[in-house]
Design a protein around this nucleic acid. Sequence first.
DNA 1: GTCTATACTCTGATAGAC
DNA 2: GTCTATCAGAGTATAGAC
Lengths: 199, 199
Amino acid sequence: MTTAAKHAPARPKRRNNRQGAVLDAAAARFRQHGYAATSMRDIAADAGMLPGSLYYHYPAKNALLVAVHEEGVRRIAAAVDHALAGIPELEPWRRLEAALAAHMETLLGGGDYSLVVLRDLPADDSALRARLVRLRDGYEARFKTLCRALPLTDPDAEPWLRMMILGAANWARVWYRPGGKAPAEVARQFISQLKGAPP
Amino acid sequence: MTTAAKHAPARPKRRNNRQGAVLDAAAARFRQHGYAATSMRDIAADAGMLPGSLYYHYPAKNALLVAVHEEGVRRIAAAVDHALAGIPELEPWRRLEAALAAHMETLLGGGDYSLVVLRDLPADDSALRARLVRLRDGYEARFKTLCRALPLTDPDAEPWLRMMILGAANWARVWYRPGGKAPAEVARQFISQLKGAPP
DNA sequence: GTCTATACTCTGATAGAC
DNA sequence: GTCTATCAGAGTATAGAC
């Protein structure tokens, strides 16, 4: 943690790159049909393999879910961090808006791996569930920091404000259609509702 | 629609009431484990039947999903309508807050059938999906009316405001824990964030 | 390292006795 | 209205050839 949080270049060891194909296929299926409705046969077919071959790369179906989730969090966190690094200016509302725009662009941008925002955590495996929740919480800590920096008249409002922003943003997955407003514009409008009239 | 929107008393024909047990069992399973992860055998066991017996009451698994969904929408809509009927006063923000409180109480109150706000609409059956979406849209029309009545400085803000409110409320299912603040209090705080400083 | 073939369980659903 | 018995197929996972 001294020099850089990510000690690996970009994709450390995608051995013969077939593992990447498996993960991509799983991400696409999980996103489109959900975890429970996706079969290993589906994933294998999309990856151009037979079902049994998957188990060389990942020991079980839920290991695939964890891997997809980890990659998803990694990507959305990178997008947000990159957006914030571009504007070291101090105006807190604008920083929050930029972060939210990056969050929503990644989430709604059509890429798979947007599961960060998993609605439907596996209820049967509590260890797995806890692990995924911890991952998401680690990511969302960024928004806690951003919201705490806001000049609010009532400091106790911060948690509610944060819950509203993230909730509204994540729920956008349900109603958003690619043809509509750009994700960044949605983010701008959301922030605008909370900020009240601008000066 | 002249005298009353609901022409049936409370539960029109729960024939021999075993059908109700089936629906309750299905609702509980769908809520806790999701649709795809629930088997007809699970539902049958919870209802005290054998798997084959379910098909006397419902012709297929997805018919159960539709029935649960319809009952869920009916309940949450009834709760909101009842709350609004109690306060025919005119202050629009208070009406919206009351409706949101009823929405969230029903949603977070622990009852099954709160699937209204279905996370995971079946992606494989687009006819079914469309039907469920239409049901939800019919319910949410109430909030469109409520938001349009608000005294907003920018009238174009109404859709964004509504999307934020419903999104934040529905997403609360993900983080809300029964020990915490009452749902009505959460609703109050959410509205408070949007209204700005009260007079 | 990757694939083939397969084991074994569970799925939604049906037919017909009671 | 519920049960017994069963179907055909899909589910995850494994063993072992290449």
